[in-house]
Write a protein that binds this DNA or RNA. Structure first.
Length: 108
DNA sequence: CTGATGACTGAAA
DNA sequence: CTTTCAGCCATCA
């Protein structure tokens, strides 16, 4: 098992500010996950206690099975979804870009 | 070992 | 706008 990876991903997701969102790709890069798929995998297993609703796909949509609750929760934080799609240009977690650029601590 | 399967993504048609 | 397709990589049968 990749305990390391799981903890890193969880740490990153916990870091996404209220009213902001990040893509699976963003989380993967920051957490140094080998692939965005793994991020989804982690959330699927240990994501229940995390703000997983702030993680969307690269195009601003969310995975079908959870879309309903996800959009609802986001709206409670002030994130507006147009036709199930969130405007990343507006709500994307800015630090995600920085974190990727620089070299964050190996452990949080 | 081989093959199928995802809370994915970017490019191409 | 849509669908397809090829990469992706830990997991599981």
């Amino acid at each position: 098992m990749d305990e390391e990876l799981h903890e890193m991903v969880r740490a990153v997701v916990r870091r996404i500010p209220r009213g902001r969102v990040a893509t699976y790709g963003d989380v993967a890069d920051i957490a140094r996950a080998p692939s965005p798929r793994l991020v989804g995998m982690v959330l699927n297993q240990d994501g229940l206690d995390l703000p997983w609703h702030r993680v969307l796909r690269a195009n601003g949509t969310c995975a079908p099975h959870i879309a309903d609750e996800q959009l609802q929760r986001l709206r409670e934080e002030g994130v507006v979804a147009d036709d199930g799609k969130v405007d990343l240009r507006k709500y994307r977690w800015e630090d995600a870009v920085k974190q990727k650029a620089e070299e964050p601590p190996a452990l949080w």
